[in-house]
């Protein structure tokens, strides 16, 4: 088996106010694999994901694409992780969709013309070319999510990380997103409350409880074991 794209060992993190958030996480994600992260609010899901992009730094050993995460490798690691945030409005901070999608390439050293070319290419792939010059404020939730995803895919990441991607989406929007995710070849890590959505986009699930991984296995089995379903 090849090297895992994400390799986390003994990750611990305590909030500045002293509350422990992660109490020793061990987790591996293989290339091309999709894993859903289930668990209650406050169980540490988002904190864990933020560590993967080096946005929070805790104690423990973290390797992304074989590179250990340190201050020096921060930029390289962020290039390998494509992080789609829960609130698309946080992510779409530029005046227009096109400028937003081009932001990543432009700020990792690509020249403006090439950044624009790649931005155009990726929004065409995602079918949102008609939104290129629109302001994010006027988009629907589904359009925002696609635009945010475009801004991430344009960086050609090895792993995609989604934090609650179905928040704000209506059922057709959720279907769209599920189809879109299944078609993407990258390894994926999806934190969600929606077991149905998790089953559509991932085979394996891990269950977070109290800053630890309490269960790991097929989505159905994990959901059953922790009674993680609607009545």
């Amino acid at each position: 088996m090849s090297l895992p794209v994400i390799d986390v060992r003994g990750l611990q993190y305590t909030y500045p106010d002293g509350t422990p958030a992660l109490r020793g996480i061990d987790f591996q994600l293989a290339a091309g694999e999709s894993v859903a992260i289930l668990g209650a609010n406050g169980s540490g899901k988002t904190t864990f994901l933020l560590h993967l992009a080096g946005l929070i730094r805790g104690d423990g050993d973290l390797r992304i694409g074989g590179i250990p995460l340190t201050d020096d490798t921060l930029t390289d690691v962020r290039g390998k992780i494509g992080y789609v945030f829960q609130d698309s409005d946080d992510q779409l901070f530029m005046p227009t969709v096109l400028e937003d999608v081009a932001f990543g390439p432009l700020h990792t050293g690509m020249d403006p013309a090439e950044s624009l070319r790649r931005a155009h290419e990726i929004i065409a792939t995602l079918g949102i070319s008609h939104l290129a010059n629109r302001a994010p404020y006027h988009l629907s939730a589904g359009e925002k999510k696609r635009a945010a995803l475009a801004g991430v895919l344009v960086m050609k990441p090895e792993v995609l990380v989604f934090d609650e991607p179905t928040t704000f989406l209506d059922p057709p929007g959720q279907n769209d997103l599920a189809r879109l995710l299944s078609a993407l070849p990258q390894a994926k890590l999806i934190a969600t409350h929606d077991v149905y959505f998790a089953r559509r986009v991932a085979k394996r699930a891990v269950f977070f409880a109290d800053g630890r991984i309490a269960g790991d296995g097929p989505v159905e089995a994990v959901a059953d074991r922790f009674h993680w379903r609607l009545d």
Binding site: L55, T75, I81, Y83, H107, P112
Partner: peptide
């Protein structure tokens, strides 16, 4: 949140202009 999103996409404190 916006700050995180910018960092995650390669921002390192200096802005580059897209439009020459």
């Amino acid at each position: 949140g916006v700050h995180h999103a910018m960092l995650a996409r390669g921002f390192r404190g200096d802005f580059v202009s897209l439009h020459p």
